[in-house]
Nucleic acid binder design. Structure first.
Length: 321
DNA sequence: AATCCGTCCAACCGCGGCACG
DNA sequence: TCGTGCCGCGGTTGGACGGAT
């Protein structure tokens, strides 16, 4: 698309909008090679491209920059990081993106908004039992997944919560780090209705440039769903499942952990293999990423009865934060 | 096969902050 | 100190795509 813009001298300049052509990309890349990722507006003033400086910068940052994970879905760990950091920083997507190697603020923003829509839809369905159990079709993405379920929304972090976290974090993380060896603590907010679930959320995150070795074992706090703090009525399926949670081997998929640890505030070390996606490469580019694990997260929650999460409270609107 | 519907994502827009003259 | 231009960020939009009916 070409748009005409009048200049100070009254001349009309063509400004190109819309999808980028390969030739334009090439010009932009050459410019960055020569001058670095700056002076975006000079690209147009030099007549190299009929794009605004803004548009050039955006194209570079979101698509052309090296080491981007283009076309690669957010991994489980990335999702968790986004959820935690959104709770901590709010909608500071650029800041959040600095903690995610290869991700742009646009990626994070898009991921978050689509996730919010998905959760809103799920909550709407669960709020209207007739529809939640109706035969209205669900797309494959809508079926209860690990992403959809307890990670309902990042709660507002109040200053008192932050103080609490900062006061507890050192003892929690350092002692656990010592005990756990390679285990690292990762932030995670209280993800669901605290009346229903309870767990501690004390972690440390490392920004992009200091990102730790991925070989270390992850330790994820797991909500205590063994002792609901309010009377709940579940379907027979759900009751059966909840009974199954008391089976000490139920959580074996999360790796070595003693069943008694799974009470209040338990933290589950998750096997790296459980989280690590299997990636397919073509010419060093990731073309496919999936969890090729017999007990992958999605499959794990797919087994939950559909009414398991009907008791989760609706999200407060951001204005209520 | 056609259509509908939901999701994803690239790109644009508007605004605020900052540097510089 | 003020005005201007540039850059970066967050919000929004619209097209492409894929799954379900």
């Amino acid at each position: 698309m070409l748009v005409f813009q009048s200049t100070m001298e009254g001349k009309r300049e063509e400004i190109r909008k819309g999808p980028w052509k390969a030739e334009e990309d090439e010009v932009l890349i050459n410019h960055v090679k020569k001058y670095g990722p700056r002076d975006w507006s000079s690209i147009r003033s030099k007549g190299l491209l009929q794009r605004t400086g803004k548009s050039c910068r955006l194209r570079w940052v979101n698509k052309l920059r090296p080491n981007l994970k283009n076309g690669c879905k957010f991994s489980l760990e990335e999702e968790r990081v986004v959820i935690e950091l959104q709770a901590q920083f709010g909608n500071k997507w650029a800041r959040i993106a600095t903690y995610l190697p290869g991700r742009t603020d646009n990626d994070v923003k898009n991921f978050w908004s689509s996730r919010q829509k998905r959760l809103a839809r799920i909550l709407q369905n669960s709020a209207t039992p007739s529809s939640s159990h109706s035969k209205s079709h669900k797309t494959s993405r809508e079926v209860s997944t690990f992403h959809d379920v307890p990670t309902l929304q990042a709660p507002k972090f109040t200053s008192s919560m932050e103080e609490e976290l900062s006061s507890k974090a050192p003892s929690c993380s350092s002692s656990n780090m010592e005990k756990a060896g390679t285990i690292k603590m990762v932030p995670l907010p209280d993800l669901v209705n605290p009346k229903l679930l309870h767990f501690d959320a004390h972690f440390e995150l490392t920004p992009y440039e200091n990102y730790p070795c991925p070989d270390s074992q992850l330790q994820i706090p797991f909500p205590n769903i063994l002792q609901p703090q309010q009377d709940l009525t579940f379907s027979p399926d759900s009751q059966e499942l909840l009974a199954g949670l008391e089976d000490p081997h139920f959580f074996d998929v999360f790796g070595p952990v003693d069943a008694p640890q799974l009470t209040n505030g338990a933290q589950l070390p998750v096997e790296e293999s459980f989280l690590k996606p299997v990636r397919s490469f073509r010419n060093d580019v990731i073309v496919k990423e999936e969890y090729d694990n017999p007990v992958n997260p999605d499959a794990f929650f797919d087994d939950f009865p559909t009414d398991m999460f009907d008791h989760i409270e609706p999200l407060p609107s951001p204005s209520d934060w």
